[in-house]
Simulated assay, not measured.
Amino acid sequence: MKGLLCCLFATLSWGGMFPVMTHALTHIDPFNFTTLRYGIAGVAFALLLLFREGRSAFRLQGERWGLAWLFGTLGFAGFGFLVFLGQHLAGPGGALTASIMMATMPMLGLLTVWALKKVRPRASTFGFILLSFSGVLLVITHGDFASVLHSPGNLTANLLLIAGALCWVLYTVGGSYFSGWSPLRYTTLTTLLGMTSVAAIDGLLLGTGTLAVPSAAAVTAVIPHLLYMSLIAGLMAVLCWNIGNRIVTPTNGVLFMDVVPVTAFVVSALNGVLPTEVQIAGAAITATALVLNNLNQRKIARQSAPQPVLKTAAARR
Rank of each mutant, 00 (worst) to 15 (best):
M1K: 07
G3A: 04
G3W: 09
L4T: 14
L5R: 00
C6A: 15
L8E: 11
M17A: 14
F18D: 08
M21C: 09
M21R: 00
D29P: 04
P30V: 06
P30A: 11
T34Q: 07
T35R: 13
L36M: 10
G39K: 05
V43C: 09
A46K: 13
L48C: 13
L48K: 12
E53T: 15
R55F: 13
S56P: 15
R59C: 15
Q61D: 14
G62Y: 15
G62M: 15
G62R: 14
E63H: 11
G72R: 06
T73G: 00
F76G: 00
A77W: 01
G78Y: 00
G78V: 06
F79D: 03
G80T: 05
G80I: 01
L85T: 08
G86C: 04
G86W: 03
G91L: 03
G93P: 07
A95G: 12
L96A: 04
L96T: 07
T97E: 10
I100H: 02
M101C: 12
M105N: 05
L108H: 03
G109I: 04
L110H: 03
L110Y: 00
L111E: 01
T112K: 02
V113W: 00
L116P: 04
V119L: 12
R120K: 08
P121L: 01
S132V: 00
G135Q: 09
V136E: 03
L137N: 11
V139G: 04
I140W: 04
H142N: 12
D144L: 08
A146M: 11
P152Q: 11
T156P: 02
L159E: 13
L160Y: 01
I162E: 06
L166T: 05
C167F: 02
W168M: 02
W168C: 03
V169I: 08
L170K: 03
V173F: 03
V173Y: 01
Y177T: 12
F178V: 10
G180F: 15
S182C: 14
R185H: 15
Y186D: 14
Y186M: 13
T187K: 06
L189Y: 14
T190G: 08
G194L: 09
V198E: 03
V198I: 10
A199P: 02
A200L: 10
A200H: 09
L204Q: 05
L205P: 04
L205S: 02
L205M: 07
L206I: 05
G207N: 06
T210I: 01
V213Q: 02
V213W: 10
A218W: 01
T220L: 11
H225S: 15
H225N: 13
L226M: 08
Y228F: 15
M229E: 11
I232D: 07
I232H: 12
L235Q: 07
L239G: 09
C240D: 08
N242E: 14
N245M: 09
N245F: 04
I247K: 06
T249N: 06
T251P: 06
N252K: 08
N252A: 03
G253M: 07
G253P: 04
L255M: 11
L255A: 10
L255W: 07
D258R: 11
V262P: 08
V262W: 14
V262I: 14
V266A: 15
V267T: 11
S268I: 09
L270N: 01
V273Q: 14
V278K: 12
I280V: 15
G282Y: 05
A284S: 12
A289K: 01
L290W: 07
L292V: 05
L295N: 07
K299D: 10
I300P: 03
Q303W: 04
A305E: 13
P306G: 07
P308Y: 12
T312K: 10
A314Y: 15
